[in-house]
Design a protein around this nucleic acid. Structure first.
Lengths: 135, 135
DNA sequence: GTCGACAGGAAAATAATTTTCTTTTAAGAA
DNA sequence: TTCTTAAAAGAAAATTATTTTCCTGTCGAC
Protein backbone atom coordinates (compact mmCIF):
# COMPACT_ATOMS: atom_id res chain seq x y z
CA UNK A 1 0.00 0.00 0.00
CA UNK A 2 1.57 3.23 -1.23
CA UNK A 3 1.34 6.44 0.76
CA UNK A 4 -0.49 9.36 -0.74
CA UNK A 5 2.46 11.73 -0.36
CA UNK A 6 4.75 9.22 -2.07
CA UNK A 7 2.33 9.04 -4.98
CA UNK A 8 2.63 12.78 -5.46
CA UNK A 9 6.41 12.74 -5.18
CA UNK A 10 6.73 9.95 -7.69
CA UNK A 11 4.99 12.25 -10.14
CA UNK A 12 7.18 15.24 -9.40
CA UNK A 13 4.40 17.07 -7.63
CA UNK A 14 5.11 19.00 -4.46
CA UNK A 15 3.21 17.65 -1.51
CA UNK A 16 0.69 20.22 -0.37
CA UNK A 17 -2.33 19.76 1.89
CA UNK A 18 -4.66 20.54 -1.00
CA UNK A 19 -3.06 18.00 -3.29
CA UNK A 20 -3.07 15.36 -0.60
CA UNK A 21 -6.76 15.92 -0.12
CA UNK A 22 -7.47 15.69 -3.83
CA UNK A 23 -5.65 12.39 -4.14
CA UNK A 24 -7.31 11.03 -1.03
CA UNK A 25 -10.70 11.95 -2.42
CA UNK A 26 -9.86 10.10 -5.61
CA UNK A 27 -8.72 7.09 -3.61
CA UNK A 28 -11.91 7.18 -1.59
CA UNK A 29 -14.47 7.86 -4.30
CA UNK A 30 -12.75 6.27 -7.25
CA UNK A 31 -14.32 8.81 -9.58
CA UNK A 32 -15.25 12.40 -8.93
CA UNK A 33 -16.14 15.46 -10.95
CA UNK A 34 -14.77 18.97 -10.47
CA UNK A 35 -17.89 20.32 -8.82
CA UNK A 36 -18.13 17.59 -6.20
CA UNK A 37 -14.42 17.70 -5.60
CA UNK A 38 -14.62 21.43 -4.99
CA UNK A 39 -17.52 21.03 -2.57
CA UNK A 40 -15.65 18.41 -0.58
CA UNK A 41 -12.46 20.43 -0.56
CA UNK A 42 -14.34 23.43 0.82
CA UNK A 43 -15.19 21.44 3.92
CA UNK A 44 -11.55 21.02 4.81
CA UNK A 45 -10.17 24.17 3.16
CA UNK A 46 -12.85 26.83 3.40
CA UNK A 47 -10.86 29.25 1.29
CA UNK A 48 -9.71 26.87 -1.42
CA UNK A 49 -10.06 28.32 -4.89
CA UNK A 50 -11.62 26.62 -7.88
CA UNK A 51 -8.55 27.70 -9.81
CA UNK A 52 -6.43 25.61 -7.46
CA UNK A 53 -8.61 22.60 -8.18
CA UNK A 54 -8.34 23.09 -11.92
CA UNK A 55 -4.62 23.77 -11.84
CA UNK A 56 -3.94 20.71 -9.74
CA UNK A 57 -6.18 18.45 -11.76
CA UNK A 58 -4.43 19.57 -14.93
CA UNK A 59 -1.00 19.07 -13.44
CA UNK A 60 -1.94 15.64 -12.20
CA UNK A 61 -3.14 14.73 -15.66
CA UNK A 62 0.07 16.01 -17.26
CA UNK A 63 2.20 14.09 -14.81
CA UNK A 64 0.31 10.89 -15.46
CA UNK A 65 -1.13 10.50 -11.99
CA UNK A 66 -4.78 10.79 -12.96
CA UNK A 67 -6.92 10.83 -16.08
CA UNK A 68 -10.16 12.32 -17.23
CA UNK A 69 -13.04 9.97 -17.94
CA UNK A 70 -15.67 11.28 -20.31
CA UNK A 71 -19.03 9.73 -19.66
CA UNK A 72 -22.23 10.02 -21.70
CA UNK A 73 -24.85 12.44 -20.39
CA UNK A 74 -22.70 13.70 -17.52
CA UNK A 75 -19.77 15.83 -16.63
CA UNK A 76 -16.35 14.29 -16.83
CA UNK A 77 -14.95 12.58 -13.79
CA UNK A 78 -11.33 12.00 -12.83
CA UNK A 79 -9.62 8.88 -11.57
CA UNK A 80 -6.20 7.69 -10.51
CA UNK A 81 -4.43 5.87 -13.28
CA UNK A 82 -4.11 2.16 -12.64
CA UNK A 83 -4.46 -0.96 -14.73
CA UNK A 84 -6.62 -0.66 -17.86
CA UNK A 85 -10.29 -1.15 -17.15
CA UNK A 86 -13.82 -0.52 -18.39
CA UNK A 87 -16.37 1.79 -16.86
CA UNK A 88 -19.83 0.74 -15.81
CA UNK A 89 -22.40 3.46 -15.25
CA UNK A 90 -25.73 2.77 -13.59
CA UNK A 91 -28.72 4.39 -15.31
CA UNK A 92 -30.60 4.60 -12.02
CA UNK A 93 -28.21 5.53 -9.24
CA UNK A 94 -25.57 6.92 -11.59
CA UNK A 95 -22.69 5.28 -9.82
CA UNK A 96 -19.53 4.61 -11.78
CA UNK A 97 -17.56 1.43 -11.32
CA UNK A 98 -14.45 -0.07 -12.87
CA UNK A 99 -14.27 -3.61 -14.12
CA UNK A 100 -11.32 -5.47 -15.50
CA UNK A 101 -11.99 -7.85 -18.35
CA UNK A 102 -10.05 -8.83 -21.41
CA UNK A 103 -10.42 -6.61 -24.44
CA UNK A 104 -7.99 -8.45 -26.74
CA UNK A 105 -10.75 -10.11 -28.73
CA UNK A 106 -12.65 -6.99 -29.64
CA UNK A 107 -9.46 -5.04 -30.28
CA UNK A 108 -8.14 -7.72 -32.56
CA UNK A 109 -11.42 -7.77 -34.44
CA UNK A 110 -11.45 -3.98 -34.70
CA UNK A 111 -7.89 -3.96 -36.03
CA UNK A 112 -8.81 -6.51 -38.64
CA UNK A 113 -11.92 -4.67 -39.78
CA UNK A 114 -10.49 -1.15 -39.69
CA UNK A 115 -6.85 -1.64 -40.55
CA UNK A 116 -5.91 0.52 -37.57
CA UNK A 117 -3.11 -0.33 -35.14
CA UNK A 118 -4.86 0.24 -31.85
CA UNK A 119 -3.02 1.80 -28.94
CA UNK A 120 -5.73 2.28 -26.35
CA UNK A 121 -9.39 1.58 -25.78
CA UNK A 122 -12.07 3.57 -23.98
CA UNK A 123 -15.07 1.51 -23.08
CA UNK A 124 -18.07 2.62 -21.08
CA UNK A 125 -21.12 0.45 -20.56
CA UNK A 126 -24.34 1.77 -19.15
CA UNK A 127 -27.11 -0.23 -17.60
CA UNK A 128 -28.59 -1.21 -14.25
CA UNK A 129 -26.31 -2.11 -11.39
CA UNK A 130 -26.98 -5.13 -9.15
CA UNK A 131 -28.27 -2.97 -6.28
CA UNK A 132 -30.78 -1.15 -8.44
CA UNK A 133 -31.95 -4.40 -10.01
CA UNK A 134 -33.14 -5.59 -6.60
CA UNK A 135 -35.45 -2.63 -6.10
CA UNK B 1 -31.79 6.94 -49.80
CA UNK B 2 -33.75 9.29 -47.56
CA UNK B 3 -33.97 13.00 -48.31
CA UNK B 4 -32.55 15.41 -45.79
CA UNK B 5 -35.80 17.33 -45.40
CA UNK B 6 -37.66 14.09 -44.75
CA UNK B 7 -35.20 13.22 -42.02
CA UNK B 8 -36.00 16.44 -40.24
CA UNK B 9 -39.76 16.00 -40.64
CA UNK B 10 -39.62 12.50 -39.27
CA UNK B 11 -38.18 13.96 -36.13
CA UNK B 12 -40.78 16.69 -35.82
CA UNK B 13 -38.33 19.40 -36.75
CA UNK B 14 -39.39 22.19 -39.05
CA UNK B 15 -37.40 22.28 -42.24
CA UNK B 16 -35.27 25.41 -42.35
CA UNK B 17 -32.26 26.21 -44.50
CA UNK B 18 -29.99 26.24 -41.46
CA UNK B 19 -31.16 22.85 -40.27
CA UNK B 20 -30.84 21.38 -43.72
CA UNK B 21 -27.28 22.58 -43.87
CA UNK B 22 -26.45 21.13 -40.45
CA UNK B 23 -27.79 17.72 -41.38
CA UNK B 24 -26.03 17.81 -44.73
CA UNK B 25 -22.77 18.63 -42.99
CA UNK B 26 -23.27 15.66 -40.71
CA UNK B 27 -24.01 13.45 -43.68
CA UNK B 28 -20.92 14.68 -45.44
CA UNK B 29 -18.42 14.71 -42.60
CA UNK B 30 -19.83 11.95 -40.48
CA UNK B 31 -18.58 13.66 -37.34
CA UNK B 32 -18.18 17.34 -36.64
CA UNK B 33 -17.68 19.58 -33.62
CA UNK B 34 -19.53 22.80 -32.86
CA UNK B 35 -16.67 25.07 -33.84
CA UNK B 36 -16.10 23.52 -37.25
CA UNK B 37 -19.81 23.32 -37.87
CA UNK B 38 -20.14 27.00 -37.12
CA UNK B 39 -17.27 27.89 -39.44
CA UNK B 40 -18.79 25.91 -42.28
CA UNK B 41 -22.23 27.36 -41.68
CA UNK B 42 -20.82 30.88 -41.84
CA UNK B 43 -19.76 30.26 -45.43
CA UNK B 44 -23.33 29.68 -46.51
CA UNK B 45 -25.10 31.83 -43.91
CA UNK B 46 -22.80 34.75 -43.12
CA UNK B 47 -25.04 35.97 -40.31
CA UNK B 48 -25.83 32.65 -38.69
CA UNK B 49 -25.62 32.78 -34.93
CA UNK B 50 -23.77 30.37 -32.69
CA UNK B 51 -26.92 30.26 -30.59
CA UNK B 52 -28.77 28.87 -33.59
CA UNK B 53 -26.19 26.13 -33.90
CA UNK B 54 -26.43 25.20 -30.25
CA UNK B 55 -30.22 25.35 -30.19
CA UNK B 56 -30.50 23.17 -33.25
CA UNK B 57 -27.93 20.68 -32.10
CA UNK B 58 -29.74 20.33 -28.78
CA UNK B 59 -33.09 19.93 -30.47
CA UNK B 60 -31.72 17.33 -32.82
CA UNK B 61 -30.33 15.42 -29.87
CA UNK B 62 -33.64 15.59 -28.01
CA UNK B 63 -35.55 14.41 -31.04
CA UNK B 64 -33.21 11.46 -31.53
CA UNK B 65 -31.81 12.55 -34.87
CA UNK B 66 -28.21 12.97 -33.74
CA UNK B 67 -26.03 12.19 -30.76
CA UNK B 68 -22.99 13.60 -29.07
CA UNK B 69 -19.80 11.57 -29.17
CA UNK B 70 -17.33 12.31 -26.40
CA UNK B 71 -13.80 11.58 -27.48
CA UNK B 72 -10.63 11.56 -25.38
CA UNK B 73 -8.40 14.63 -25.68
CA UNK B 74 -10.77 16.52 -27.97
CA UNK B 75 -13.98 18.38 -28.10
CA UNK B 76 -17.16 16.41 -28.56
CA UNK B 77 -18.38 15.73 -32.04
CA UNK B 78 -21.90 15.05 -33.26
CA UNK B 79 -23.18 12.37 -35.59
CA UNK B 80 -26.43 11.19 -37.10
CA UNK B 81 -27.88 8.26 -35.21
CA UNK B 82 -27.69 5.03 -37.16
CA UNK B 83 -26.86 1.45 -36.29
CA UNK B 84 -24.68 0.89 -33.21
CA UNK B 85 -20.99 1.20 -33.94
CA UNK B 86 -17.55 1.83 -32.49
CA UNK B 87 -15.40 4.88 -33.02
CA UNK B 88 -11.84 4.75 -34.28
CA UNK B 89 -9.70 7.84 -33.76
CA UNK B 90 -6.34 8.25 -35.47
CA UNK B 91 -3.57 9.55 -33.21
CA UNK B 92 -1.82 11.18 -36.14
CA UNK B 93 -4.39 12.70 -38.48
CA UNK B 94 -7.14 12.78 -35.86
CA UNK B 95 -9.80 11.48 -38.18
CA UNK B 96 -12.77 9.73 -36.66
CA UNK B 97 -14.31 6.68 -38.28
CA UNK B 98 -17.12 4.32 -37.46
CA UNK B 99 -16.78 0.57 -37.56
CA UNK B 100 -19.42 -2.06 -37.02
CA UNK B 101 -18.35 -5.18 -35.21
CA UNK B 102 -20.06 -7.44 -32.74
CA UNK B 103 -19.94 -6.44 -29.10
CA UNK B 104 -22.01 -9.28 -27.68
CA UNK B 105 -19.00 -11.14 -26.35
CA UNK B 106 -17.54 -8.33 -24.32
CA UNK B 107 -20.94 -7.20 -23.11
CA UNK B 108 -21.81 -10.68 -21.97
CA UNK B 109 -18.50 -10.94 -20.17
CA UNK B 110 -18.99 -7.52 -18.55
CA UNK B 111 -22.48 -8.48 -17.40
CA UNK B 112 -21.14 -11.66 -15.86
CA UNK B 113 -18.30 -9.93 -14.06
CA UNK B 114 -20.20 -6.84 -12.91
CA UNK B 115 -23.72 -8.12 -12.39
CA UNK B 116 -25.03 -5.17 -14.42
CA UNK B 117 -27.73 -5.49 -17.04
CA UNK B 118 -26.18 -3.54 -19.86
CA UNK B 119 -28.30 -1.31 -22.07
CA UNK B 120 -25.75 0.44 -24.24
CA UNK B 121 -22.06 0.51 -24.95
CA UNK B 122 -19.72 3.36 -25.84
CA UNK B 123 -16.49 2.20 -27.35
CA UNK B 124 -13.73 4.37 -28.73
CA UNK B 125 -10.42 2.98 -29.91
CA UNK B 126 -7.46 5.15 -30.66
CA UNK B 127 -4.46 4.22 -32.77
CA UNK B 128 -2.94 4.72 -36.18
CA UNK B 129 -5.14 4.62 -39.25
CA UNK B 130 -4.13 2.72 -42.41
CA UNK B 131 -3.21 5.92 -44.28
CA UNK B 132 -0.92 7.17 -41.53
CA UNK B 133 0.73 3.78 -41.19
CA UNK B 134 1.99 4.08 -44.76
CA UNK B 135 3.86 7.31 -44.07
C1' DG C 1 -52.70 34.01 -49.08
C1' DT C 2 -53.36 34.25 -43.96
C1' DC C 3 -52.07 33.18 -39.33
C1' DG C 4 -49.90 31.17 -35.37
C1' DA C 5 -46.24 28.55 -33.60
C1' DC C 6 -41.86 28.18 -33.84
C1' DA C 7 -37.03 29.32 -35.82
C1' DG C 8 -33.34 32.73 -36.48
C1' DG C 9 -30.29 36.40 -34.96
C1' DA C 10 -28.29 39.72 -31.65
C1' DA C 11 -27.12 40.52 -27.32
C1' DA C 12 -27.00 39.48 -22.66
C1' DA C 13 -26.62 36.04 -19.13
C1' DT C 14 -24.67 32.10 -17.18
C1' DA C 15 -21.35 28.47 -16.70
C1' DA C 16 -16.88 26.46 -17.22
C1' DT C 17 -12.10 26.94 -17.39
C1' DT C 18 -7.76 29.43 -17.59
C1' DT C 19 -4.69 33.18 -16.68
C1' DT C 20 -2.57 36.75 -14.05
C1' DC C 21 -0.69 38.52 -10.11
C1' DT C 22 0.46 38.71 -5.32
C1' DT C 23 1.22 36.20 -1.11
C1' DT C 24 2.43 32.02 1.10
C1' DT C 25 4.70 27.65 1.59
C1' DA C 26 7.28 23.22 0.62
C1' DA C 27 11.60 21.39 0.63
C1' DG C 28 16.51 21.38 -0.38
C1' DA C 29 20.84 23.83 1.04
C1' DA C 30 23.44 26.02 4.47
C1' DT D 1 16.80 24.70 12.40
C1' DT D 2 17.05 28.64 9.43
C1' DC D 3 17.54 30.50 4.82
C1' DT D 4 16.32 30.62 0.04
C1' DT D 5 13.84 29.93 -3.95
C1' DA D 6 10.81 27.74 -7.05
C1' DA D 7 6.50 26.67 -7.09
C1' DA D 8 1.66 26.51 -5.07
C1' DA D 9 -2.43 28.86 -3.20
C1' DG D 10 -5.90 32.25 -3.46
C1' DA D 11 -8.37 36.23 -5.42
C1' DA D 12 -9.76 38.38 -9.22
C1' DA D 13 -9.96 39.07 -13.92
C1' DA D 14 -10.01 37.13 -18.44
C1' DT D 15 -11.34 33.83 -21.68
C1' DT D 16 -14.15 30.35 -23.61
C1' DA D 17 -18.29 27.68 -23.92
C1' DT D 18 -23.10 27.37 -23.67
C1' DT D 19 -27.77 28.99 -22.73
C1' DT D 20 -31.34 32.34 -22.39
C1' DT D 21 -33.99 36.28 -23.69
C1' DC D 22 -36.37 38.98 -26.70
C1' DC D 23 -37.70 40.65 -30.91
C1' DT D 24 -38.33 39.80 -35.90
C1' DG D 25 -39.07 36.69 -39.61
C1' DT D 26 -40.66 32.45 -41.75
C1' DC D 27 -42.52 27.50 -42.24
C1' DG D 28 -46.40 25.10 -43.06
C1' DA D 29 -51.33 23.96 -41.76
C1' DC D 30 -55.57 25.76 -43.16
Amino acid sequence: MKGTAELLKEHQLKVTPQRLKIVKMLEKHGHINIEDLYKEMLKEFPSVSLATIYKNINQMIESGLIQEVKLPETKSVYELIKEPHLHMVCDKCHKVEDIVIGTEKIIEEAEKVSGYIINESFITLRGICPDCQKR
